[in-house]
Design a protein around this nucleic acid. Structure first.
Lengths: 341, 341
DNA sequence: GCAAGCATTCAAAGCGCTTTGGAAATGATT
DNA sequence: AATCATTTCCAAAGCGCTTTGAATGCTTGC
């Protein structure tokens, strides 16, 4: 079923039928009703490619998911983010186009998306400091929103980010207030912007207290359970082990917990742990009482915000950058307590 | 830059340029070279929508991700599956179209995908027994591959599945051989096909040994860490607690481990645990020595297989169903041992 | 030397939609 | 009744590509 047939059935021109369906004012209410009813009756749905060829808009948003070539790891927050964004897209009749590409090919992918005109805008994932993708997308003149930030000079593009620096500063301060002196940081790869900012916050809290941060107590790697375990194990084996850990993700924290319980220590009593909790749907932080004390910010929500911001930008057609900085909730769980004397 | 301009620059007709670029034989090698060089030089890339409007093929594959309306949970295996599938798609110049929809709207989504002609085929996720999506897709006449199976009558559509039944039967037998008598099953929602089959395998092993399975030792719910924890805690509190657990996912197993260590028991000595390991990239089962004894099957690999199968089907244009049944590896980890006397 | 055959190239139609620039019909105004 | 403005509808062009059917120029074979 296509426009031509439908209009023939109705005895109207394609123009009128098209206009009726797209709610143009220059068609009478009566015919509009008639047309819409017929469309439903015959199961007519406009061919999306013909439509976007004619309009020049693709009604699709691109997400380029980089796969790190060294690690072959898919970011686990990705599923929840996508779910959030997808909700907004389908609510606004947009499609989501996913390109999973080795990080080295990312450039090419963006250029292709632009040249083939397959999307109206893109979401940029996992920004690094001074990420080259940003000038690239700007030069390609394609609307985009970054999930995270890519530099300190962050005013000339649109982003949605968590206040990572403040979050981790607060977390460290909270532990200091409980009497802890030796804090460990289990962080993601620090060429990622979010991890760099978290470390900054961690260090800032130390500086404010005049405490020197210990290099061996700051680990950074791909955020797997296993890295959390290994790093914690190594730190607990130090002559002067830390009494508290700040951990950048729930997944790593699971490894941290494993190392702690393997060492026959009790979390929340012998060792305190604060995590950053992305509120992943399949990894809730306990039920009634949170397992971990956590700085919490829903990545599902971030997905929704990014998507909505991008659609707004495309809609408005103006290029003035927009920014959303999300503050985290510091939720108290069972994993923290005063330092043991 | 478009075909018209490019052909004007080259002093050739659109026909010839198009054919040169698409490797049609009826164009001389010399001009083909010249055209291709010019295309690169001018950054020409065929507009994908115009192309698919003309060819009738969209060069895109749809994935409909259902969000369970009651639970709002995104399946965590999803990221790795998508990564695998995406690899195949980009290698074959296909796009991946993702629709995240509340499960109640799935029907409508498939119909729309078909009517709008936006994809050449779809992957069906999370099949249930007698899943209505299968006859629907068949009637819509759109090529599809199911990740999993939807019934015992599984011959008239294409699928890629893990031999869940045999896997869990083997796992149970392995535990029986170690002397365990009371096995617990922590399973996913049993209206999902995979979970149903796993239970069957679990029960079959019992039946073969003449052991009666205990209803209170078989739990089933959404596969979260928290459910794993709660279920295990409850079972360990029984008068006759189980000595071994079979757990349907790594995420749940993390909760199982938490409950075990909270009960001051040692996994692998006091309590044995076998899990099903989807080999998620961000949740590796330990490093050198696996933490958990596991029936292992890479969901990343499954993604690749599904994608490849679907592309093959589309390419071949024939509708004879294809099937791939993957056997799992039973890998020995530190979480199992002989039953304590 | 001429028809036949082949290798190249092209003009134009068509994919299914939107949109421009009118035209026809209706109603209001003089 | 003639004029004008509105409303309602339409024919046709165009989005950027592929593909059909035909034309062109060259080489062969007899």
């Amino acid at each position: 079923m296509n426009l031509k047939k439908l209009s023939k059935i109705l005895g109207l021109s394609q123009t009128t039928v098209s206009r009726a369906l797209n709610n143009y004012p220059e068609v009478s209410e009566a015919t509009r009703e008639r047309v819409k009813a017929a469309a439903v009756a015959h199961g007519y749905r406009a061919n999306i490619r013909a439509k976007s060829l004619a309009t020049g808009r693709s009604m699709a948003i691109g997400h380029v998911i980089p796969i790190s070539t060294q690690h072959e790891i898919v970011n686990p927050i990705f599923a929840d983010f996508i779910a959030g964004a997808g909700e907004i897209y389908s609510r606004n009749q947009h499609d989501m186009l996913l390109s999973v590409v080795p990080d080295v090919d990312e450039d090419r992918t963006y250029r292709e998306l632009a040249a083939k005109a397959s999307v109206d805008g893109v979401i940029v994932h996992g920004p690094r400091p001074n990420d080259p993708r940003i000038p690239l997308l700007q030069s390609l003149n394609i609307p985009f929103v970054v999930h995270g930030r890519a530099s300190d000079e962050d005013t000339d593009y649109s982003w949605v980010d968590v206040n990572n620096r403040r979050s981790f500063e607060r977390a460290a301060n909270f532990l200091f207030d409980l009497g802890h002196k030796r804090l460990a940081l289990i962080n993601g790869l620090e060429f990622m912007d979010f991890a760099r900012r978290r470390k900054e916050g961690f260090l800032a809290a130390h500086a404010a207290r005049g405490v020197e941060a210990t290099p061996v107590l700051m680990a950074s790697d791909e955020m797997t359970e296993n890295f959390g375990f290994k790093a914690t194990q190594a730190m607990l084996a130090q002559r002067q082990p830390p009494t508290a850990f700040i951990v950048s993700s729930m997944i790593m924290a699971i490894g941290v917990r494993r190392a702690i319980s393997d060492a026959r220590l009790q979390m929340g009593r012998d060792i305190s742990v604060i995590i950053h909790d992305d509120a992943l749907s399949y990894l809730p932080n306990g039920a009634e009482i949170p397992i971990f004390t956590a700085t919490k910010s829903s990545v599902h929500e971030a997905g929704k915000l990014c998507a909505q911001m991008l659609l707004d930008i495309i809609d408005a057609g103006d290029k003035t950058p927009r920014h959303t900085l999300l503050e985290t909730d510091l939720t108290l769980g069972e994993s923290t307590g005063p330092v043991l004397k």
